[in-house]
Design a protein around this nucleic acid. Sequence first.
DNA 1: CCGATAGTTCCATTATTCAGAACTCAATTT
DNA 2: AAATTGAGTTCTGAATAATGGAACTATCGG
Lengths: 270, 270
Amino acid sequence: MGATDGDIMDKNEAADKRETGTLGKLMVLLDIVTHAESPMRFTDILAVAGQPRGTLHRQLGHLTEEGLLEVLADGRYAPGLRLLDLASRSWARNEFRLIAEPHLNALQQLTGETVHLGVLRGASVIYLDKVEGSQPVRMYSQIGNASPIYCTGVGKAALSALPDDRLDAIISSVSFQRFTEHTLTPETLRREMTDIRRSGNAFDREEHEVGIRCVAAPVYSEDLSFVGGVSVTGPAYRLTFERLEEWALPVRRAAESIMSGMRIGLGPRR
Amino acid sequence: MGATDGDIMDKNEAADKRETGTLGKLMVLLDIVTHAESPMRFTDILAVAGQPRGTLHRQLGHLTEEGLLEVLADGRYAPGLRLLDLASRSWARNEFRLIAEPHLNALQQLTGETVHLGVLRGASVIYLDKVEGSQPVRMYSQIGNASPIYCTGVGKAALSALPDDRLDAIISSVSFQRFTEHTLTPETLRREMTDIRRSGNAFDREEHEVGIRCVAAPVYSEDLSFVGGVSVTGPAYRLTFERLEEWALPVRRAAESIMSGMRIGLGPRR
DNA sequence: CCGATAGTTCCATTATTCAGAACTCAATTT
DNA sequence: AAATTGAGTTCTGAATAATGGAACTATCGG
């Protein structure tokens, strides 16, 4: 179960000085509970939340009443079902995802491998969609997941679209965890950016998980309000280095198609 | 814009008299935006939210800052990515889903049809999991979706587990929409409960969508803190009435297995 | 039965949110 | 080109909801 993603964006979140008032405090609690390995007891939350007991009690009560948290039979707190409901709607109607969908399918058909679509959020990549060949799928397995930027194709592709100042800000805000022997360091990542920017492709050569490789290309809006990437991922034995090179162009093409779709679909205000 | 599910739980939500203070107001806004067909402008939200302009502005600002909403390039508001992130974690670790998973797979293997797992929330069913044979899957297509109780197998199965008072309360709180010519009315639904309770199986005979049938069985915890159902769904030409009867038992068996799993996994407080 | 740990309720104090009006900015009309 | 409308933002004292400490209750282990 090695690859947890948990603490990657923490620094970034904390950097936000201005709290969002009451909502901010409640979201911190939600984060605590959703990040936990298993449902937490009141006291467990109390310990990490650093909130007086009375206050915490009321806050958890409110979250529960709204369905954002759930109280199990034994009193422990778990994430609530309302989250699923909200997310499913937000996903189904996501404009960017809808625009990308046909291109992802085409890319999947062409390569036969799993295709991912991800977006940069803070210092993480959130997977927005995934198209696989034909196995019974563990659905949320990937979608919605926040993953590190420095060792995923989509993450590195997204980074390459950013101007140097934002790029450096993000790199220095992230704590690099060594997942495999190929995982990059801040320095090697920074150096790789030049190649990615020139070629238009980012690769993941077993940097996140042994035996998994991927080719990616950046997707972004002109004003950079939106930065993400598309990738083709598969097992190392099928995705030889030659194969990766072979698919670099189709991946770039798909990224370009999505971007031109965005200019039509999202660009003009209506 | 035909079969939206949107307004089914509204009555129920509204029935909650006691607001959750600040959080409650913000959640109403979140609901407005996530329920919308497409991103909304400030003024659109203003019209339905019935909030003074200044107030609304700050509230949307807070939601945006937390990543629950997103402001598009043209100023319109859409659901934010943080929702996906929260939901994916909440789904991945959901105890009930984890317990049910192997049984769902087994049922899928046995029948070859799509298997669903759903939970009752308020007056809707929320799909927690879905196992299909082997087609490229539209992931959130079903999972997390809030669907009507009165015309889905899982919904009717779940209802049958409730005591009469809660049952009647829910039935009378829902506005019945006629999806097909077989869709039940409050009265026919109420009458069907007797059969479902006796046989232990609920059926959906093209009541929600023409050409789709399903067999379901209820799954619930002893204290009814948890009420849901499992179902096998498929096209009418494969799921003949004989077939439905044939699978009634296996579906019930699966439900029972899940329930005994819950008693071990969730029951005793640790 | 006692002491301890866990969770809940109360209430005066304090900090946030509220509502409305005043303001900016851009597009449209005259 | 000036005037007008519509859309969104910022500011303020007043209203409201959140806070936190302490007192209270329930549950558990011995």
